[in-house]
Amino acid sequence: MNVFRLTGDLSHLAAIIILLLKIWKTRSCAGISGKSQILFAVVFTSRYLDLLTSFISLYNTSMKVIYIGCAYATLYFVYMKFKATYDGNHDTFRVEFLLVPVGGLSFLVNHDFSPLEILWTFSIYLESVAILPQLFMISKTGEAETITTHYLFFLGLYRALYLFNWIWRFYFEGFFDMIAIVAGLVQTILYCDFFYLYITKVLKGKKLSLPA
């Protein structure tokens, strides 16, 4: 555990909590892509199956349980409790275009051809692109609520901090995992355009809106 890893995890947790609170307080999931939230629930579920097979630490177990719990709570909000406010008309990204290649790739490029390892690999690859339906929705509507941009900022920051964590671990532990690093790089790059808009607009008190 190093400072980048810890702040990365906390940033991830902050993102998840911000989204849940936003929906709860406003009683609305307008502007949120349910499809991205489904993908994140699939990511956590397929990655954290090792909860059933191995114990690493109390921290590790509690964070995994919290992430999974929050992911399903978000899905419950979007598709059941606040379904009337869900903007499905704008949530039109075709997720099969992500699931099929990512599924195929996890069978082809993995550390070990075993069910748990393939599912872990699948989750790493899927996470790297799971935000695309949300970004697609924003590009379609041309705007995002400020609170939604805070959610996206912390969600993007988390993987960027993990990149520093992996540099740290490579230097001080000689450890690296090429699958996680490449997927993490792709994931962070996908947020770059958003980071630019967040810094130049949202942090200056303006609403995030895209030119028509």
Partner: peptide, 10 residues
Amino acid sequence: CHHTQAKDEL
């Protein structure tokens, strides 16, 4: 093996 270490990450 090296990759099991990654499982300690989230």
